[in-house]
Design a protein around this nucleic acid. Structure first.
Length: 733
DNA sequence: AACTCTTTAGTCGCG
DNA sequence: CTAAAGAGTT
């Protein structure tokens, strides 16, 4: 049996799978990384090096965790129960549920997703009377998360200037508010779990003894705190098996630290990583291009991908006049591929920024080709779903202020800003929740009393019932569906609400299936011993909604062209890949260039994009692109020039070199542009122009330089108006 | 309280 | 340009 397991592995893969002790595996794109991970787990169990109980495996996405589990159960006759496989957040949630008392949390703590967190911060800033122009809620949120992700509590953040000191105050107040309300945000999940193990020696030793083998996927994406957590959990004895690729590290902007790979080698005394460089995905031409591009980066552990799959076709490059023509090219090429027998679903169109999808979607739509856009709003993040979830949260815990505020007046029932102000004041004075304040001061406001009665009615009716029934009660009594019936375009929302019942059914079935512990992240030992199992399942479902916002994607099965950002494409592969918008300023993105290692990260992003393709690769750029409604002129991306010309076929040979753009409204050559001459004025003073909103007017003046340049137009009705020259759309008339 | 108008901001995004 | 949040109006 073990012989079967290891059959077909190349020597490097074999070395990785059977490594004794801790190891770092440098797994290039398409080198069989997931196979190595799952085979190693199976091998460890089969050779009795460890029981399933002693294994913990961490992934970054729920999808990866699921995939690992399903591959594992296909490989092994044994059950995967007892194994801890999940995301960092999922595992930390599990840990905190099991030891909520030691972690200082209520048994049924709720999880805030980023939108909930932002709402909580806004509420806090309002209560503190903070000028939100000076302290933008989003910035405060980023500050708090950044520090938590670095493992820092408010008390330990260094603040040298008054502004930062104020942010630290908000940080402290925010944590106090969360503790009062018994809620935990994503970063808190990790930090709290880390502190739990750090402070509680008994618990730490228990888990260190239990988990003999800890495996980490996408190790290059771990943050400092995550790595510290892993080390703590591993202790001195356990074997830590980390798999990653420094060349595919593209999440530094959200706290990932590639440096963890070098640190890990030092900490564990690993001299050399095991390198997986044989690629089973792409033809050599594609790999050569990817190798050449990534070779431009200085900070690498260093490896080149190779294949014995043959040279393959040359890469095609197309230079378009503008983004519309680029999209047209993509559509034509896809049509041709389809005629040749390729399925639409085998084609991916990648772009750097979501805003670019519009032009391509438009072209595909007009041509009548099926497509699917990845990313965007996820199921549990939709407004109507969050409303329904808020009612569920109030059933679980009516003192949840976040949930209370979300639906106290939705659908509208006459609880306005005035009423809420009073309620808020009463709550703060009495040191209680909004719910308590509403109950205490009942009767004052009819709508508020109605709301209290509504929620109490829901709670009473739902008592002891299953999850799906509870959801139905919420849908029936909240009149959310009635509300959306009156709204135009509310049909989709109603469908989603009904889908929520299905999600609850599926979740409950899953939980039954896998026994109490496995599927529901919340239902570990202590939660299962809650007084009310229905309540526990509700909490588990709410945690599931926060931790797995996606999953409920519709139409995934249909044959459709796949549209997504390069980030979203990581980990996927396609027969044919289009990488569009290869222009300086866009890819590499201008914003990235201002950051220290920004260009190298952009280049890694390009490397990820290139290595998604199995057989065919199309690259394109546009000389002119509409961005925010204004034309921008871009030079070809430097990444295009970094690909050896011998690998690339230009599809523009018939075309003359295009003349330079007529006029540079925004000078953004990424450093390559000539020094900016005084800008040409698009409209002479005194010229008659038309504005989309204000109608006709007369240009009366200019002021400012560069991006701040403004134009003044006199309108007969509204008088003089200043507009930012780069953004205003004025047509001569 | 509900509606409409105006202003604003816009890289990538797991859990 | 466009979506979303904030300000202003009815």
């Amino acid at each position: 049996m073990p012989a079967d397991l290891l059959e077909g592995l190349n020597p490097d893969q074999l070395a990785a799978v059977t490594a004794e002790g801790s190891a770092l595996v440098l797994a290039g794109a398409g080198s069989g990384k997931t196979r190595v991970l799952t085979t190693r787990i199976a091998w460890l169990v089969q050779t009795a090096r460890v029981s399933p109980m002693g294994i913990l495996a961490v992934t970054f996405t729920n999808k990866a965790a699921k995939e690992m589990l399903s591959r594992l159960s296909a490989m092994l006759p044994i059950n995967t129960r007892g194994m801890w496989v999940g995301t960092f957040h999922g595992l930390c949630n599990r840990l905190l549920r099991a030891h909520h008392q030691d972690a200082g949390l209520p048994q049924l703590f709720q999880i805030l997703d980023s939108a909930d967190q932002l709402a909580a911060i806004k509420r806090l800033l309002k209560a503190l009377n903070v000028d939100t122009d000076k302290y933008e809620p989003r910035k405060v949120q980023a500050f708090i998360n950044m520090n938590k992700e670095a493992g820092l509590r408010a008390g330990r953040v260094e603040a040298w200037d008054p502004y930062t000191r104020r942010l630290v105050e908000f940080f402290a107040e925010y944590d106090a508010q969360c503790n009062r309300e018994g809620v935990v945000d994503f970063a808190e999940l990790l930090l709290r779990a880390y502190e739990l193990l750090e402070r509680n020696a008994l618990l730490r030793e228990h888990y260190q003894t239990r988990f003999r083998h800890i495996l980490v996927d996408e190790f290059q994406d771990t943050s400092k705190l995550q790595y510290a957590w892993l080390k703590l959990l591993a202790g001195p004895e356990a074997a830590l098996f980390a798999v990653g690729d420094d060349d595919q590290s593209i999440y530094a902007f959200r706290g990932a630290d590639v440096g963890n790979m070098a640190t890990f080698m030092r900490d564990m005394g690993i001299a050399e990583p095991i390198k997986l460089t044989q690629n089973y995905r792409s033809h050599a031409t594609i790999l050569d291009a990817a190798n050449a591009v990534i070779a431009q980066n200085a900070n690498r552990l260093g490896k080149d991908l190779w294949t014995d799959a043959g040279v393959g076709e040359p890469i095609r490059h197309y230079q378009a006049m503008d983004d519309r023509e680029e999209a047209g090219f993509v559509v034509e090429a896809i049509r041709e591929l389809y005629r040749e027998g390729l399925a639409y679903a085998d084609v991916a169109v990648l772009y750097r920024a979501n805003a670019q999808s519009r032009a391509i979607e438009h072209a595909l739509f007009t041509a009548g080709l099926p497509y699917r856009v990845y990313g965007g709003q996820r199921f549990f993040e939709r407004a109507e779903i969050k409303h329904a979830l808020a009612y569920l949260r109030l059933i679980a815990n009516p003192e949840d202020d976040n949930a209370f505020l979300r639906v106290v007046n939705f659908p509208a029932r006459g609880v306005g800003a005035r009423t809420l102000e009073g309620l808020d004041a009463a709550a703060r004075q009495g040191g209680m929740s909004l719910w308590q304040a509403a109950c205490a001061g009942g009767g004052k406001n009819k709508g508020l009393a109605g709301f209290v009665a509504l929620v109490e009615g829901m709670r009473a009716e739902a008592r002891g019932l299953g999850l799906a029934e509870t959801v139905e009660i919420v849908l029936a009594r909240s009149s959310l569906i009635e509300h959306y019936k009156t709204e135009k375009e509310g049909e989709g929302r109603i469908e989603n609400l009904n889908e929520l019942t299905n999600a609850a059914l599926a979740f409950a079935a899953d939980a039954d299936d896998q026994g109490l512990a496995a599927a529901a992240p919340g239902t570990t030992a202590s939660a299962a011993t809650a007084d009310d199992p229905a309540q526990a399942q509700l909490i588990a479902f709410l945690a599931h909604a926060a931790l797995e916002a996606g999953e409920h994607e519709a139409g995934a099965a249909a044959d459709a062209v796949q549209l997504m950002t390069v980030h979203a494409a990581k980990g996927l592969e396609f027969h044919t890949v289009f990488i569009t918008g290869l222009e300086e300023g866009l890819f590499p993105h201008e914003n990235a260039l201002t950051e220290p290692d920004g260009l190298e990260e952009e280049r890694r992003l390009m490397y990820v994009a290139l290595t998604r393709a199995r057989r065919r690769l199309f690259l394109s750029h546009a000389q002119q692109r509409l961005l925010h409604g204004q034309p921008r002129y871009g030079l070809a991306s430097r990444f295009l020039e970094e690909i050896p010309t011998a690998l690339v076929h230009s599809l523009n040979l018939h075309r003359r070199p295009t003349p330079p753009p007529p006029r540079s409204t925004a000078d953004w050559g990424g450093g390559k542009a000539p020094s900016q001459p005084s800008r040409e004025l698009p409209h002479k003073i005194g010229a008659r122009v038309s504005h989309p909103r204000y109608g006709e007017g007369v240009v009366s003046g200019y002021q400012g330089q560069g991006a701040e340049a403004e134009i003044r137009v006199a309108f007969p009705k509204v008088g003089d108006k200043w507009f930012i020259l780069d953004y205003v759309k004025l047509t001569p008339c």
